[in-house]
């Protein structure tokens, strides 16, 4: 059984049009996924639909066989699905430690949270060095690490990241992807949405290509990377020539 199953999901914002138009996808455990596709393909919306921020209008999302329909974000989080949004959504005026502590907000056992904060510091020593600094004073890469650290406090089964490399220097992005690889080794399924498809696919096991709210094709990252359809999606569709055309 797949860890996470998305079946025919239709979703959109407010009274707006459907962004996801019947998307189906299976996420297996112990594998890292990279979701790629042109702007407006529905990549971010897919992540938000899974974690309950944008509840699906139709279709089903099941996690370990249980339907997530009607659950709030905090309830889905409790099951072990963690979402790291695109806009560096930290608490800017809280310290690094406070930010990580907020990651464990839904846990009742305060002592366990403090222990896990220590574990996070073990994984990202740079955060320990800056634990009393306000989050807004960190560099872009450190903020991204803090976001990862904050998600890890819950020891989630799945971490979904929306464009973690956005606005980061290539060398810093590489560090972030390296830490994600480590998380995968720790048994966490990773789903990354990346605008930089080449980079995202290079660091993940499996690639999923989205367009117009649907899954177009998927496969091992290497295969996806060399698939001609990828270029077609990013550079525009190749229209069949007809006699009357230019």
């Amino acid at each position: 059984m797949a860890l996470l199953e998305i079946e025919n999901v239709v979703a959109g914002y407010g009274i707006g049009p459907d962004i996801l138009t019947g998307l189906s996808l299976k996420i297996e455990p112990d594998r890292s996924y990279c979701i790629v596709g042109p702007n407006g393909a529905g990549k971010s919306t897919l992540l938000k639909a899974i974690c309950g921020l944008v509840p699906p209008r139709r279709g089903r999302v099941t996690f370990e066989g249980a339907d997530l329909a009607g659950l709030r974000t905090d309830e889905i989080l409790r099951r072990g699905i963690c979402f790291v949004p695109q806009d560096r959504s930290l608490f800017p005026d809280m310290t690094v430690t406070e930010n990580i502590r907020m990651g464990g907000y839904i846990l009742k056992d305060r002592r366990a949270v403090e222990n896990r904060i220590d574990e996070v510091f073990g994984m990202f020593p740079i955060l320990r060095d800056r634990k009393s600094q306000l989050a807004k004073t960190l560099s872009g890469g450190q903020q991204q690490m803090l976001l990862l650290g904050r998600a890890l406090v819950l020891r989630p089964r799945v971490i979904m990241l929306d464009e973690p490399s956005l606005g980061l220097a290539p060398i810093v992005s590489k560090q972030i992807f390296d830490s994600m690889a480590e998380l995968k080794r720790a048994g966490i399924a990773i789903i990354v949405v990346e605008q930089n498809a080449r980079m995202g696919l290079k660091f993940s096991d499996w690639g999923c290509v989205l367009d117009l709210g649907k899954l177009v094709f998927e496969g091992p990252s290497q295969a996806v990377l060399s698939d001609p359809r990828i270029e077609e999606l990013y550079l525009g569709r190749v229209r069949p020539r007809t006699g009357t055309d230019g």
């Binding site: 974690c51 921020l53 709030r72 974000t73 905090d74 989080l77 409790r78 979402f83 790291v84 949004p85 806009d87 959504s89 930290l90 608490f91 800017p92 005026d93 809280m94 406070e98 502590r101 907020m102 990651g103 907000y105 839904i106 904050r150």
Partner: peptide, 22 residues
Amino acid sequence: RTGYAIRATMHNRTAAEVVGVN
């Protein structure tokens, strides 16, 4: 804990939602 959640919501509503604040 509730006070933390209130401050978190003030700082960044989406982030608060993402860490499970109702």
